[in-house]
Design a protein around this nucleic acid. Sequence first.
DNA 1: AGTTTGACCCGGACGC
DNA 2: TGCGTCCGGGTCAAAC
Length: 271
Amino acid sequence: MPELPEVETVVRTLKQAVKDCKIVQVDIYWNNIIVGDIQVFKSSLIGQSFRRFKRRGKYIIFELDDCSLLSHLRMEGKYFIKDCTDKKEKHEHVIFTLDNGKTLRYHDTRKFGKMEVIPKSKDYVQLKNLGVEPLSHKLNETYVSNYIKNTKQCMKQLLLDQSFIAGIGNIYADEILFRMKVHPKKIAKELTPQEIIDLVYYTKHVLKGAIRAGGTTIRSYTSSLGITGRFQLKLKVHMRKNEPCYLCKEKIVKEVVAQRGTYYCPRCQSL
DNA sequence: AGTTTGACCCGGACGC
DNA sequence: TGCGTCCGGGTCAAAC
């Protein structure tokens, strides 16, 4: 699932690939991907060039001349750069034809992703409830201790809460808690000062490491292989049910916490 | 107003 | 092999 590091990698790669390219045609094969009117979507984008590439939480923001394109990959969204003569693949739902003979293709097996055109003058309402960017200085010990004062949430919920920190998903929430050696059900308010320091440190550490890994992998891609933002990251706890903990050999447990499949080491992350 | 729960978006995996 | 059921994650809306 694309989380912040994957989205960041996609944004960086697309910047290299399509900056200043002009959209000459837009073909949509699954309408529900598009938020709002399909014809307005098309007519807003045709003739526009990609100028700036940004990320906020898990949202991709493409800034064009007169509007922005907001894209959320949800679970399985991916972008590919292909030649315009390449055959359409099964799960390619939106194809932007560019003025250089290439196409930018949105691929999404589950069709969960969303795309929306935002007029230049309007605010991004989708982004207004997002919390701090984890890699910015705004994520610090003071911010965390103030935030947790007013919440009943457990740690897993807290890390998934996009209005606390923007961009952490299920996988990295588990990985961060494992490194903190904190149980996913621990009440956030009860974090010790040291655990707050660890939360800040490991959140940045895990996400930065993942972006580095994404960047490394992405270099080996050719344009025909596409831009998935996925990478071979060594997960220390997520998806390791019944396998031995890397630290203490105890079996990793999988349990539903905050409605999400949650992996943790019952010994290292005891309550 | 903060918090929790559920619906939604789907195809693929899995079980019988 | 075919059919039905469940699963998954992020977001939003509704209920509490």
